[in-house]
């Protein structure tokens, strides 16, 4: 339960760790768009090569990337498999209602490669950025939304608190499960409905505890003079450095590369 790899911060001092989190989020968004713009193998190669580059730059053990892939590989395989049979054109191979075409193979490869690239690149972001920096950056990036009366500070505070309490509640779930198992609760066998029923002795104490924690935390925050976002300062200020400009430039080059590949070479997929 505790080794959920996706979205876990891996402390380090690589170039990626040092980038401004705001820059990283914007670059991630740009990259996601880029991934979906790939229309032929040359463009895909550019994307895959840059994903590999990012992974190497992050200096995070490959094992962790594999772990985050492992959670999602089923979805990748299923979507790829579905795409395999949905190609149009001359069938290369046929059996009963199934037929595989060249376009189908292409589709499958592109869908698979795109999803995998997306997961790896977002993992690179979460591995190299502490959850705090991430919420902090989101709060600052979303600040303009204040104009539309979006409670940006409150949302960010909620995320901060959620991040703080997720490990705690996971640990607590573990503990409550052990306690109920010690009273003979059976959580491993039975039908689906029986198993859902078996969760009640875990969920109720968990909710009670979460509410109690929430109440106590609210008291503690008030004792520490919390009064919302107004008049609040921050200890750490984010500053863009040359690294952020250089990486942005690199991403721009990538975009140009993909666009050129798309324009100059024939499209393999729609």
């Amino acid at each position: 339960m505790r080794d959920i790899a996706f979205g876990q911060f891996y402390p380090g001092h690589s170039l990626l760790h040092k980038l401004d989190p705001r820059a990283k989020i914007i670059l991630l968004v740009a990259f996601i768009v880029l991934v979906f713009c790939t229309a032929n193998y040359a463009a895909l190669a550019v994307v895959v090569a840059s994903v590999i580059g990012v992974i190497l730059l992050s200096k995070v053990p490959l094992r962790l990337y594999f772990k985050s892939l492992k959670m999602i590989i089923f979805i990748v395989l299923i979507t790829s498999a579905l795409n395999l049979f949905y190609g149009t054109g001359e069938p290369l191979w046929e059996f009963w209602v199934f037929k595989i075409t060249l376009a189908g193979i292409n589709n499958a490869v592109f869908v698979g490669a795109r999803i995998i690239s997306l997961i790896l690149i977002s993992s690179a972001l979460t591995f190299t950025t502490s959850p705090n920096d991430l919420t902090d950056a989101l709060e600052r990036l979303m600040k303009p939304l204040n104009v539309f009366h979006v409670k940006v500070h409150e949302i960010a505070m909620m995320m901060t608190i959620a991040l703080r309490f997720v490990p705690l509640l996971l640990e607590e779930t573990d503990k409550i499960m052990s306690a109920q198992k010690s009273r003979g609760a059976d959580m491993e066998s039975g039908s689906l409905i029986q198993r859902i029923k078996a969760l009640i002795p875990v969920l109720i104490p968990l909710f009670v505890s979460a509410f109690r924690r929430a109440y106590e935390l609210a008291v503690a925050m008030e004792c520490r003079c919390y009064q919302g976002g107004e008049g609040r300062t921050r200890m750490k200020s984010l500053k863009l450095s040359y690294r952020d400009y250089v990486s942005s430039a690199v991403v721009v080059v990538l975009i140009v590369g993909v666009v050129l590949c798309n324009v100059l070479l024939p499209h393999t997929v729609r």
Partner: peptide, 20 residues
């Protein structure tokens, strides 16, 4: 194994958090 949980009763720390 579940049979043995009845033979060896274990009360966890802060057991009141398991009431439901």
């Amino acid at each position: 194994i579940r049979k043995f949980r009845f033979k060896v009763g274990l009360v966890f720390q802060y057991p009141e958090y398991q009431l439901f």
